[in-house]
Each structure stands twice: as structure tokens, then as C-alpha cells.
Amino acid sequence: MRWLVLAVAYFTLLLFLIGVFDLLLGLWGLISSGGFTDPVAVVELLDTVLLLLIIVEVHRTLIAYAGDEPVVRIVIGAAIIAIAREIISFRIDEFETINDALTGAGAFGILLTGLVIAYLVVRYTETQDSAYEQ
């Protein structure tokens, strides 16, 4: 099982390299066309950067799992990045009504708050556990 996890981890590295190449192409396209002043284009580029960070977090999770290390904090960190990515690319005009947009925004806010609290609890618990081990 460990070799399969490591194979998937190396596959995520390949995906990361492809994503970096795509990011560089997108950045070059924005600079050469003068579109770097367009906020939507910049948000799309930032979306790609956050997607790359999620891939890195998945890679870290796989490596930690293969090494029998705790993965909960890494998974919560990846979830925070994923929710932040959704919040940054949030567009009100994609919803039918303002109430739908407010419901979506509220759900993202509650989810992000819950994940941050969970991250802090896990981090505090890991700190306490390491203090007891010493």
C-alpha cells in the first residue's frame, strides 16, 4: 500500500509541474496582452496559484501518510486553502437571486470559520501532546 501512496505522491508532483507551466503561460499571456490590469484575469491567475497550493498540500498529506505521521492538520490546511480559493473567486452574478448569493457567502463564512477553529484545536492538541512527551 505504501508504494501506491508514494506513486500517487509523485504523480501529484507531475501535476504540480504541469500547473506551474500553465501558470507561467497564463502570466506571460497577461503581461504580453496587457490584461494584467483586468481584475477577473488576475483572480483567475490567483485561482491557479491556490490550486497549486492545494496540490502541494495533497502531496504533503500523502508523504505524511506514507511515513505514518499525523495528517489531520495538513488536511485541514488544504481545506482552508480550498475554501479561500472559492471565496476569492466568488461572484454574486453567478446566483439567481441576492438571497442565494448571501446564503452561499454565509455558508462559505461558516465553513471557513469552522475550519480555522478546527485547525487551531488540532494545533493546540499537537502542541500539548508534544509537551507531555518531553
Rank of each mutant, 00 (worst) to 15 (best):
M1N: 15
M1W: 14
R2E: 10
R2M: 14
R2W: 08
R2T: 15
W3C: 10
L4I: 15
L6K: 15
L6Q: 14
V8I: 15
F11A: 15
T12C: 11
T12L: 13
L13E: 12
L15N: 13
F16K: 02
I18G: 13
I18V: 10
I18L: 15
G19H: 08
G19Y: 13
G19F: 05
V20R: 03
F21A: 14
F21Q: 03
D22F: 10
L25G: 10
G26L: 02
G26Y: 01
L27P: 04
W28G: 07
W28E: 09
L30H: 00
I31E: 03
I31P: 00
I31N: 01
S32Y: 01
S32F: 04
S33E: 04
G34D: 01
G34Y: 02
G35H: 01
G35C: 05
G35M: 00
T37Y: 01
V40D: 05
A41T: 04
L45K: 01
L45V: 06
T48N: 10
T48W: 01
V49W: 01
L50V: 00
L50A: 03
L52Q: 08
L52H: 08
L53P: 04
L53F: 11
I54W: 08
I55G: 09
I55S: 06
V56I: 14
V56R: 02
E57K: 09
E57G: 03
V58W: 10
V58M: 07
T61M: 07
L62Q: 09
I63H: 09
G67W: 06
G67H: 15
D68G: 04
E69G: 01
E69R: 15
E69Y: 11
V71I: 11
I74W: 00
V75W: 00
I76D: 04
I76N: 02
A78E: 03
A78I: 02
I80A: 02
I81G: 08
E86H: 09
I87C: 13
I87M: 14
I87S: 11
F90A: 06
F90C: 05
I92S: 07
T97P: 07
I98C: 04
N99L: 13
G104H: 04
A107W: 10
F108T: 06
F108R: 11
G109F: 05
L112W: 10
L112Q: 09
G114S: 13
L115S: 08
L115V: 05
V116T: 12
I117E: 01
A118P: 00
A118Y: 00
V121T: 06
V121D: 04
V122L: 03
V122S: 07
R123T: 12
R123L: 06
Y124F: 09
T125Y: 05
T125L: 12
E126Q: 08
E126H: 05
E126K: 08
E126A: 11
E126L: 07
S130Q: 12
E133R: 14
E133N: 12
